[in-house]
């Protein structure tokens, strides 16, 4: 116990917890849209292009000495580009959306590997493939933490302003069109918010497990929430609670933090699903008993 308290006094560990908190708020809010609008594979596609962006940033900054192009900025550029392409392809009639997602997913990863091959390692030592793909939350710098907090605040503000329109769009797109809403623009904004969220989450759990953190807490919340707002609130609380519990577990067991967090949320998801099944069965039994006794 003493050792955990000692750990918590280390600035990098404090950054880890604060970065996780910022990301969990995003996962609770944006994850709700991802789940209700069935955009899990879209999120997967965008998430994997992040690897291309990280490789691109390492390559350009090592070969052309572009110091401002950090891996996070590279990741943002690629994720945003993927979001724009996916929004445009959603409306294209000659290509299926899941095909487009698959192409973007694979090409994003392949580009990352190629760029990483050509990084000039005499000038820059890039992060390992393992830490990019599976996360290294222990290396969240204070500067990175500030960027994450600002991004989280901007995304929360945008969602607060567009909440009603996003609700109509995700509940019934036809109704959104009839109401005169600019569904194409709203779609684009939603995809961009997902893209930025993916980049932020990749700092915590790595690229491979972005989907888990964005989707699972929101999916658990969906089982119990009566409204989208409630789903966002429950998703955020679950995401925060389970992630922090996962981080403590990682510290105690000396396991990789990102993977431990995802595993903890995964177990919680299975338990929640089982609990929901039992609850629904009991409800339906009570209803049929009531009907029979009438």
């Amino acid at each position: 116990m003493t050792s955990i308290i000692e750990y918590l006094s280390i600035p990098l560990i404090q950054n880890m917890f604060m970065a996780t908190a910022a990301v969990c708020v995003l996962c609770g809010i944006i994850g709700a849209y991802v789940v209700v609008n069935r955009m899990v594979s879209v999120t997967g596609g965008v998430a994997h292009t992040v690897f291309g962006g990280v490789g691109f940033a390492y390559y350009v900054s090592s070969v052309f000495m572009v110091s401002w192009l950090t891996p996070m900025i590279g990741a943002l550029l690629f994720a945003v580009a993927a979001a724009v392409i996916m929004t445009l392809l959603k409306r294209a009639k000659d290509i299926r959306q899941d095909t487009a997602i698959g192409v973007i997913w694979a090409v994003g990863m392949a580009l990352g590997v190629i760029f990483m091959c050509f990084v000039d390692r005499t000038k820059i030592i890039p992060a390992s493939f393992e830490s990019i793909l599976f996360g290294d939350v222990l290396y969240v710098s204070t500067q990175m933490l500030i960027v994450m907090a600002v991004c989280a605040a901007i995304i929360v503000a945008i969602v607060a302003v567009l909440y009603r329109d996003f609700l109509i769009l995700t509940f019934d797109e036809t109704q959104a069109k009839i109401s005169g809403l600019r569904t194409g623009l709203l779609d684009l904004i939603l995809y961009l918010l997902i893209a930025i969220t993916c980049v932020m989450v990749s700092n915590i759990v790595g690229i491979i497990m972005i989907i888990a953190l964005v989707t699972m807490p929101a999916a658990i919340a969906n089982l119990f929430a009566d409204s989208l707002k409630e789903m966002m609130a429950i998703g955020t609380i679950l995401s925060l609670g389970l992630s922090i519990f996962g981080l403590f577990m990682a510290l105690a067991l000396n396991t990789p933090p990102g993977s431990t967090v995802v595993l903890v949320i995964g177990i919680a998801f299975v338990i929640a699903l089982a609990f929901d099944r039992v609850r629904k069965r009991r409800k339906s039994a009570a209803r049929s008993f009531h009907d029979n006794s009438e």
Binding site: R164, S179, L228
Partner: peptide, 20 residues
């Protein structure tokens, strides 16, 4: 409609109010 969408009947009615 996706019946799993977390929305109450009255909130669904309110979505009909939006007029861009």
């Amino acid at each position: 409609f996706d019946r799993r969408y977390p929305i109450k009947a009255e909130e669904a009615v309110m979505t009909g109010l939006r007029d861009a």
